[in-house]
């Protein structure tokens, strides 16, 4: 019988610790497929964040570092500068990247470090139990915004892709979503572009992926996927915000 579907080589056989309905697994698989398809696994070094995906290294079959909270872009800078032949990617959540690590990602992007960042935005701190993130939507209830996020008190959610796209340094910046099949296809396409730019040594690349957190949102998986489309996509528009070919 012809084999038409299999686990990517860049993933291990480990069962993930992610909650039911969480889309980390989908995103892991997309990254792994792209590494396989572009033939990059043997050169790849991933950098795991602090957050739910801290254990990502158990699931990827490639070299991996576990970063300090928010510092993955600094780790990646060191790796890539030390060995430019590596294919380096950071895999970071919204608390890690947009809050404590805001400075590291900003400056790595601005220096045009030639690594790829997968930024998983699920509008909440997952691992620590559902606190407000910099990406939490206006009015969204979390464990630290029991009355909903008040924008006059704590400001509006940060649109990371748009923010980084304002930098003059050429880069590839896109936002996609994995809450439905079109989104998954678009994410794969964007991820492939992001890694291709790195492979060709062109620029820094970042794909912001809108993701779910049914556990901390307190809703079932199906509803969580719908919630992304209904609430997150309107605030976080999908698409490419910057490409290295186009000077903004």
């Amino acid at each position: 019988m012809e084999l038409i579907f299999k686990k990517p080589e860049s993933l291990t056989d480990t069962i993930t610790h992610y909650c039911p309905g969480c889309t980390h697994g989908v995103i892991h698989r997309i990254v792994a497929e792209v590494l396989d398809e572009l033939g990059l696994r043997e050169r790849a070094v991933g950098v795991a964040p602090v957050g739910c995906s801290v254990l990502a290294y158990n699931y990827f079959y490639c070299d991996f570092l576990e970063a300090a909270h928010g510092r993955a872009p600094a780790f990646a800078t060191g790796l890539k500068r030390a060995n430019p032949n590596l294919i380096v990617f950071t895999y970071q959540g919204d608390g890690d990247l947009a809050s404590i690590g805001g400075n590291e990602i900003l400056h790595a992007a601005n220096r045009g470090e030639k690594f790829t960042t997968i930024f998983v935005n699920n509008a909440v701190y997952g691992m620590t139990g559902g606190q407000m993130a910099p990406t939490t939507l206006p009015g969204q209830v979390t464990t630290t915004t029991p009355f909903g996020r008040k924008v006059d008190d704590v400001g509006y959610p940060i649109r990371v892709a748009e923010l980084l796209a304002t930098l003059r340094t050429p880069s590839y910046i896109a936002r996609t979503s994995v809450h439905n099949s079109e989104g998954i296809i678009a994410t794969k396409k964007a991820m492939r572009k992001a890694f291709s730019y790195q492979k060709e040594n062109v620029c820094f690349s970042l794909v912001e992926v809108l993701s779910t957190c049914p556990t901390n949102w307190g809703i079932p998986p199906k509803q969580a996927a719908e919630w992304v489309g209904e609430h997150m996509v309107p605030y976080y528009p999908l698409g490419e915000f910057k490409t290295p070919e186009k000077v903004h």
Binding site: P73, F75, T77, L79, K80, N83, N103
Partner: peptide, 26 residues
Amino acid sequence: GCFLQMESEVAVINTLFGAAAAGIRA
């Protein structure tokens, strides 16, 4: 070689982590 002026000492030390992991002297 490579000299990089980083955005903070916090970034510096973590860049050293990455460079050390890559096996070079930094």
